[in-house]
Amino acid sequence: MNLTDRQLDILDRFLRNEMGDSDREEWKAMMQDPRVQDEIRNMTHLQQAIREEGRERLRAELGAWDMEEGKAAEKPGAKRVFSYWRWAAAAVLFLIVVAALLMQNRDSDPASLFAEYYAPYPNIVAPIQKGESSVDPFSRAFQLYEAGQYQEAIDAFELLPKNNPSIIFYMGLCQVELGEDEEARYTFATLHMIPDHPYHQAVEWYLALLELRSGSLEKAILMIDPIATSPEHPYYRKAIQLRRELDHL
């Protein structure tokens, strides 16, 4: 059905959220006609699709501003060329040194260091008691973890309410044990949302080790350094040792 120009203008104002008081009476009258209702419905769907296209364009524009900002941070140009050469030379030198050290000591690669420094976190929540096998689902999940049955432990944790930081933390530990590093990272990240939970420092350590296992040495170092400079941190000594070893990689 074809709307009149006046009706189309009112419909546009409706879609743009710009209807004035004077439009409302006419709008009400328009809405009485089923054919007009159809047209409004079509236009509303159309506007939804246009909105999604618009959002995508706006998102691309925001992304372009981020890139622009990144490029601006790299300036000035001439100095940058010089700087590139210096960095390239330093990188080549670094690779030569790393290669030489690796030839000397093949055991000190990131994966070996992970194996050396990683230790499962003890089950301090519901430890297995000698001669007892727990039947309550909460204790059972932790005891499966302690017994090294990590997949079964995850399945058991999944059934528990996720309002307890211990459950989330130990699920993350199971994922580390199973080599599900990406999932573990995100599970640990959710712990960040819980104020004052008791596993903050342990999570910092395990996240650093996950970076090490994935070979992201720079990220690992960024996470280890704050631990290695905080004497009160429970992983302080380990972090200092690991940091030294990383310096020799």
Partner: peptide, 17 residues
């Protein structure tokens, strides 16, 4: 952000956040 994290993870703690 919290909703994205909630969608992405199987487990998310939201009570009291």
């Amino acid at each position: 952000l919290l909703n994205k994290l909630k969608k992405r993870h199987r487990t998310v703690y939201t009570e009291g956040v």
